[in-house]
Design a protein around this nucleic acid. Structure first.
Lengths: 213, 213
DNA sequence: GTATCTTTACCAAATGGTCAATCTTATCCC
DNA sequence: GGGATAAGATTGACCATTTGGTAAAGATAC
């Protein structure tokens, strides 16, 4: 980060311009000029606020991940099945429909930078941390559900990892292959393949058990 | 394709040089010059055999996918459980260890171009076709197993799709996040979450049922 | 000799980045 | 309060280098 205590709005505006440019041109064809065009002020101002393209992209990654994580705070005092569904929906469909129309635009950019991470140690680390947060969120929901007796005592690590993987695959498929129904398919698949192992056999758990769909 | 009936070795050499360059520099930093450096002959020869960078990359994608698909022919007269395991292993670990040491190098390049597909209609189509082949292979194995009575009569489309997704997620995780154990985890997860729904309850199927691991 | 293949020298455009000049804003002294 | 002043923010002109691509001259095989 090239910090600049004053004018944080400008930095933020540059971040948003970067998002738009990245969204439109893709990472490999991203020129600083493209960002400049999405930015109301002068292009060279970018160079004043960031130490070159590399620093800009790194900062943007932090910004993108930070945004994603700050939006993914959910209350967890609900019915465990609903909590789990909620988390999965949020990952697959975005936050409460309506608020953010650009959820998939963000996802596209995220996904592209994610693939790019194989060539950048620092980015890889950032994504690893973030990935662990997402998986941890799901693990948390599972753990809470098990404590309540709504879920069977499965291996929360394996299960959360698996769900996270499926979510990521569906997103990748939707984005790279244009499979618009991939998220819905993934939801159904998780319900079909994962939920059974979560559902307890006893009546106690069945009481808070969600209807199959 | 910019066809050239003669000198197909040169074209192939360029494809391999492209692979190496892509592997080393990544798509976004790939210069025609980098390919030239991996290529024994002159750099400009590339421009003689291909109509510019774009055509070169497109041809390379065909080449890469073609290679992948030609290597993935397996006999299917084995035990269905072994056939399924074999297919999954092949996707996750590569063909019989030893032969191709660069399996993951190829995968990395594949994965990167895959992410890139969101920006290129033609590439997206190529990947869609290829994706369908991979999924179709698994569907085929499932269908054969069901006919033999080794598998329960599950929805082969949903199940194959799901397995394919999990495989892709594990590869992505291994490549982008450096999770070396992702493929093994995915194998275990498929065994834990998918195999149960495949295993028939009756003794007939159990006879050819694989031991859990 | 001629058609395919290969190389060398070269180029125009694109691109990340700099620099000095200008505009804004906060600070200080009276 | 008001003007001098310094510090930060912003701009437009400019540049060195990189990069994809070309044209014409050599090879090489048939």
């Amino acid at each position: 980060m090239t910090a600049s205590q004053t004018a944080p709005d400008t930095r933020e505006a540059i971040m948003e311009a970067t998002f738009r440019a990245l969204s439109e041109h893709g990472y490999s064809d991203l020129r600083v000029r493209d960002i400049g065009e999405e930015f109301e002020k002068s292009r060279t101002l970018i160079h004043y606020h960031f130490d070159g393209k590399h620093d800009l992209i790194s900062s943007f990654l932090e910004y993108l991940i930070g945004q994603y994580e700050s939006q993914s705070k959910l209350g967890d005092d609900e019915n465990p099945w609903e909590a789990l569904d909620g988390r999965i929906d949020q990952c697959l469909l975005g936050p409460e429909l309506g608020e953010r129309f650009d959820h998939w635009e963000r996802m596209k950019v995220y996904h592209e930078l994610f693939a790019q991470a194989q060539h950048n140690e620092a980015h890889r680390e950032a994504f690893n941390e973030h990935y662990e947060v997402i998986r941890g969120n799901i693990e948390h929901v599972l753990r809470a559900g098990i404590e309540r007796g709504s879920f069977r005592a499965v291996d929360v690590e394996d299960t959360s990892q698996f769900i996270t993987d499926v979510i990521h695959a569906a997103r990748a498929r939707r984005i790279s292959l244009d499979h618009d129904d991939a998220p819905e398919q993934a939801k159904r698949a998780i319900a079909a393949f994962v939920y059974p192992s979560l559902a307890p056999a006893d009546a106690e758990g069945a009481r808070t058990r969600r209807p199959s769909d």
